[in-house]
Amino acid sequence: MHSLKANTINEIEKIWHRRKTKVFLLLTLLIPVISTLLLSLLKNKTSIVWGLGGDLPMLMLNLFTFFLLPMMLSVTAVDSFSGEAAARTMKLVLVRPITRAKAFAAKVLALMVYAAIYLAMLWIVSSVSGWAIAGEGLTGGFADSVKAYPAAFLPMAAIGLLSVFIAQCFRNGSGALTTIVFVYAAAKLLPLIWPQVSAWSVFSYSDWHVLWTGSGASAGKLFSSFFFLLAYIIMAYTAGLLLFERKQW
């Protein structure tokens, strides 16, 4: 297990060294703060009553899970797989005492760690700025966010793993990223024409966390959605691992 731990730390460190990671973390800090300031201003000017302090974490979660977070996870996945293949740095890991299965697991674990960090940071910053800037107490919306943020991790993990699979089908990062953006846009738009598609598309579950808010969905609905997402995660991981194991460097 030492090699898995060592390479997971390495992968986390490599992702941290990339400029786009820091830019995204900065966006995660700035967007909730700027949004709070703007919404507070709007409230003062128009007297529209917002439940801002408590609702902001959910508002930000909806915004980030719709586009920003899936994109950032996809970019990270592309950099870690097709990006490293193009830069010919993948073999730096593969000639060390670590099996391919563990090297793959370490890359995926690092991606998941960043998904959790982004979500945790977003929750903390949006909660604090909602409370500190808007000056409102903790409402029911805040309580919802405590359940919704951990729940949002699951669809993000599924989308991240699907990106890992797609990224490995390409030898360069730009081709992989273009395909992922195309797949994501198609998956979001297709249900408008064929509503049935949404039942089978993992991208339609990016707002799964909403089911956990308010009075919530039935236990049966939560249960079936959970296993649907879990099945996607297992399938995407297995397919990604198969590709990774077969690659020749």
């Binding site: 030492h2 390479n7 390495n10 490599k14 060294h17 740095t89 073999k91 730096l92 005492p97």
Partner: peptide, 28 residues
Amino acid sequence: VGCLIETADAYEYMSAYDNLKLSARFYL
């Protein structure tokens, strides 16, 4: 086993020391 294969590639966005630090983690 140590090796230098094909071309001497490294993570270009990191320093030489940081590159070696990544490799060193594999050896207890």
